[in-house]
Simulated scan of single mutants.
Amino acid sequence: MSHDDGYGNDSGRTGDGYSTLGGTRQTRTRLPDGEGGDGYGPRRPPRSSRSLVTVVGVIVLLLAAIAFANLGGGDGDKGGTSGGSGGSKAGAAPTAATGTKPVTGKNGEIAAGFSQDQQGAQSAAANYSVALGSAEMFDKTKRDEILGNVIAPSAVGGFRKTLDQAYSATLFKNLGLNEDGTTPTGFTFISRTTPIGTKVTKSSDEQATVEVWCTGLIGLAGEGSTKPVTDGWFTITMELQWINGDWKAVTHSQKDGPAPVGSDTRASSADEIAGAVNGFGGFTYAR
């Protein structure tokens, strides 16, 4: 759900505003196993937002450093590709409704109580991607709470350490925020990740590896913003483990794309973007 450059096996957001970890893009890295008017104007030129990417790139690197030991998948889907201790590869399947009711449990604002099968693992990965890519990740207290709810106990310490370094005054400055990570008066800071689809690539009874294809928004909305809100496309890979009746993330990595051809839709004003983000809430993702 690296920033500045580190979030999972590839954890970490790069200078790219899009890395699950609150706007930090990632490149794979592994931590030791032991670390448990028109406000924006017309369409922006091809990736002029790379400056933002550079900022987020830093996050990505750190997030990447958060990647932990590879763990297999957890697929309790008895008709699926459950495997032995090593897990077996699962074939790709379209992200379609299964008829199973969404989870009803919650850890803070994050969905919880996912089923011990491939569907549950995909739902967990999708919801965790949203949480790890949210604006709340820029607040130390909220970030620690999110990590405690979605990361495996054995890995949460490493994630917190890496992300505390990633979410630095330098990163905040590059994103147009105040040195303490707060939003300047008169602006709205936006960091939101939206899953497009999920895919299980490996699974066993206790572990699962899930890829989540996402699009995201990051930037400052407001009159005169020098860091306007831009969009991005990326794929998050999350290794999950079944712990105490729910799925928890052990590693997290991110890579760019697949990205579609940009449309000719007129870029909205800063006020429109801020209003949309504040007016439209997020979802609980379940298949």
Rank of each mutant, 00 (worst) to 15 (best):
G232R: 00
I146V: 14
P228F: 09
D164K: 10
T226Y: 03
K161A: 15
S225T: 15
T209F: 00
G158W: 11
V200Q: 05
V229G: 08
A169D: 13
I146R: 07
T193A: 04
L147R: 07
E179T: 14
I218M: 10
F159M: 14
F234Q: 12
F159W: 15
G224L: 02
L220I: 04
G148M: 07
G158E: 09
T188N: 13
T226V: 04
T185V: 08
T185H: 10
G245R: 01
L147G: 13
I196R: 04
K227M: 06
G222T: 08
A166Y: 07
T183W: 07
S191I: 02
D180V: 03
T230P: 00
W247C: 04
G222H: 11
G245F: 06
T170M: 05
W247G: 06
K161Y: 14
A152N: 05
G148I: 02
T188Q: 12
I196W: 00
A208T: 10
W233S: 10
S154L: 13
P184G: 00
S225L: 07
V229L: 08
T183K: 05
W233I: 05
E206L: 04
A166P: 09
V212D: 05
L240I: 08
D205R: 06
D205P: 04
A169L: 02
T188W: 04
K161Q: 15
L171Q: 03
W213H: 03
N174F: 01
V250I: 09
S204R: 02
E145S: 10
K161G: 15
G232M: 02
F234N: 13
S204N: 09
G158H: 11
T185L: 04
E211Q: 14
W247K: 01
E211M: 12
V229M: 07
G157E: 15
N174D: 01
V200M: 11
T209M: 03
T237S: 12
A249C: 09
W242M: 09
L171P: 02
V210G: 09
S203N: 11
G157P: 14
K227H: 13
D231Y: 09
N149L: 08
I151G: 07
G245S: 10
T185K: 14
T162N: 15
T209H: 02
A152F: 01
T185R: 12
A169N: 08
Q165R: 15
W213M: 02
K227I: 02
Q165I: 14
T235R: 04
K199V: 00
L240G: 08
W233D: 11
L240A: 10
E223K: 07
C214L: 08
N174G: 11
N149R: 06
F189L: 10
T215A: 04
N178V: 07
I243S: 03
R160N: 15
Q165D: 15
T235S: 04
N244I: 00
T182A: 03
W213P: 00
T170R: 07
W247T: 00
E206P: 00
